[in-house]
Design a protein around this nucleic acid. Structure first.
Length: 387
DNA sequence: AAAGCGGGGCC
DNA sequence: GGCCCAGCTTT
């Protein structure tokens, strides 16, 4: 199959027929396929950005139950929306989705617009998502291009260039557009993705089970393992950080991540970068950095565990500590909100994944009785100051 | 054009 | 341990 054969009408209709027949038999029963309501299509497409189907499945159901329509999402608390996103990653999606719902209410009368240009003005909706919503929900004749179809179409074309380059994107979008049927466009687009996901897989594609192998340039030459060309360079950076559970009379200190840091909008235990100094200086470094971050002085650090995790281009070794509150000695007001929370309150705050793990430790290990008593002496109970 | 943004599945 | 995922936005 080559770009020049795009003008061959008969070829394209045969391709579409084979693909649809396959999809009719093999389509998975996914929650978001049970409704073509624009709102539900929208939610699913945002959740599915860079996120696998199996991961999204339970999130979608809970989200729709809690926010059944655009108006209820627009009226919700951002924290509540984030809580439904907890664990899904790319939390900017949730904040943008929330803002977009408010924009739809304010500017579009509460209905998703059917015009591509207006749909694209909503935060979080780019070329793919707009095409997906318009074709699936409104049966508009709009192409899509994402991970599955990029691989599928590149293999069909035996495209040897970089599929991520501007030229590669132009070529593949053009093919996606040229293949579109006149009607039932959404089902066709989903069939392309499904084929890419179930058959035309990244490794060991099941070419023998492929309904469109006849037209595949890669299968014809045995190139399916080399196309698309892998252009990924990981280049991780190893860093060390520390997170501290600071206990104060039964409660623990949480802070909300600011707009310019990771996990913006989510809550986390106080977390600081750790220099690779000698272990003896660790306690002092922790006390100093946590104080600078939170205004709170904590001591008697006890190491709990080490968690390794990755985010974007960092491999993080996270040293988790427990510490006792000494005093609040903030030299300046802190922009990011922070709160002392009872362990039972933690589940109602949106946390990042390591924060969630530490929250589990808090619940499982209540503070020793002696520590609470010591905290009480150094910090006698008093009335809260009126603001 | 490249970087930032998460977390889990899978080999 | 590295690759991958129904991408979008900012620099």
């Amino acid at each position: 199959m080559s770009v020049s054969s795009l003008t061959d009408t008969r070829w394209r209709s045969n391709f579409r027929r084979r693909l649809r027949a396959w999809y009719k038999r093999q389509a998975r029963d996914l929650p978001w396929r049970r409704s073509r309501e624009p709102y539900q299509v929208w939610i699913s497409e945002i959740m599915l950005q860079q996120t696998q189907v199996s991961t999204v499945r339970p999130y979608f159901q809970r989200f729709i139950r809690s926010f059944p329509n655009i108006a209820s999402l627009a009226a919700a608390d951002e924290q509540d929306v984030l809580r439904h996103w907890e664990g899904l990653g790319y939390y900017r999606r949730a904040r943008q989705l929330h803002r977009a719902a408010q924009q739809v209410v304010a500017e579009f009368g509460g209905q998703l617009p059917r015009e591509p240009d207006r749909l694209r003005t909503l935060p979080g909706i780019g070329p793919y998502t707009a095409g997906a919503i318009l074709s699936i929900a409104f049966d508009a004749r709009e192409p899509i291009l994402e991970a599955n179809t990029t691989r599928l179409l590149a293999r069909l074309l035996a495209y040897r260039g970089d599929v991520g380059s501007a030229a590669g994107q132009r070529t593949l979008w053009a093919l996606a557009a040229a293949l579109l049927p006149r009607k039932d466009v959404g089902r066709f687009n989903q069939a392309l993705m499904e084929l890419g996901s179930l058959v035309c897989k990244p490794r060991a594609p099941a070419c023998n089970a492929c309904p469109v192998r006849t037209w595949c340039g890669s299968a014809a030459h045995g190139l399916q393992d080399q196309i698309p060309k892998a252009a990924r360079k990981t280049a991780y950076e190893e860093i060390r950080e520390a997170a501290v559970i600071i206990r104060r009379r039964g409660r623990v200190l949480l802070r909300r991540c600011g707009p310019d840091e990771r996990w913006s909008g989510l809550w986390d235990f106080p977390r600081v970068p750790l220099s690779a100094g000698d272990p003896a200086a660790l306690a002092g470094e922790l006390t100093r950095k946590v104080h600078r971050l939170t205004g709170v002085i904590a001591a008697e650090h006890r190491h709990l565990k080490t968690i390794k995790h990755g985010v974007t281009r960092f491999r993080i070794t996270l040293e988790c500590f427990e510490a006792a509150y000494v005093e609040n000695a903030a030299s300046q007001p802190h922009i990011s909100p922070q709160k002392w929370l009872w362990p039972k309150q933690l589940p109602s705050y949106p946390l990042n994944s390591t924060g969630r793990k530490l929250a589990g430790l808090v619940a499982g290990h209540p503070p020793p009785a002696g520590q609470a008593a010591r905290g009480q002496r150094t910090n006698p109970r008093r009335r809260a100051y009126a603001p």
